[in-house]
Amino acid sequence: MDTIFDIYLLEAIVNGVLLGGVLGLLALGLNLVFGVIDVVWICYAELVMLGMYTVYFLHVVYGVPVLLACLGAVVVVGVLGALLHYLVIRPVLQSEPINQLLVTGGVLFFLQSFATLVFGIEFRNLGLKLPILNFGEMYFSYARVLAFLVALAGMVGLYLFLTRTFLGTAIRAIAQDREIMPLMGVDSRKLYLVTSGIGGGLAGLAACLLVLQYDVHPAIGLTFGPITFMICVLGGLGNMIGGFVAAFIISQFISIGGFFFHIEWGYVIAFAFFILTMFIRPQGLFGK
């Protein structure tokens, strides 16, 4: 009895780790954008939703191979991120921070409704039959393991980009001192646009991983959007490594909480943990 219980708990923990990878990737894009542009994209999860639809339509409706469809989604959402910046964020960059928050909230409303209008409210999935992996008595879905690995690869890729390239270094620099960037010959406006594109691209990548595991529907953004914000804030907004670690903490709350109770209690515990943490360390777990 005890051993079986432990194995299931271990399974929940491992599933939490796997979930953490995807959440970490989600948080990464948001943190990147916040760190550089100082704007929170409330509609970030809706970009992910559109990415999921892109994969779905390219693959299921137009018969594009899954890998290519995923690539397509990364590109499409990347372009959407850049457009979001160009059309919506840039006009309000000089106005009050709360307006910047609200304007992306308006975009959230728009994208969610637009998706309902165009795609309908049905739940859709890729219909892929991915195998189940088992280790001893523990079972893990192949999709989750794959998602975890790709998420890790995505994070490593971003890390290399940010540390090795001129552009990436400039992106890190601008978060530390905006004003003097022109003296370095850096056009901040262009850099913002590029960063938004990359942020969107990361959302697109996350979308590919999520659509392997979950059905897509217009309101799916609301299910993991808030959790993504919590993760970013817990890690210290703009702190990419902090966000990454926070993703694993939060995913454990969800997974283990969901193991002992119902899944929504896992989320309740995660959110309550977030509120409590804010009261103990308002700057986030890893903020300065």
Partner: peptide, 25 residues
């Protein structure tokens, strides 16, 4: 703790999530 701006918005957002999810739960 002077939680203001973005942070106030996000803490209160979490509160909504806790209540709504608890109702479901």
């Amino acid at each position: 703790l002077r939680i203001v701006g973005h942070y106030f918005a996000l803490v209160t957002l979490a509160l909504t999530a806790v209540v709504a999810l608890s109702i479901v739960g």
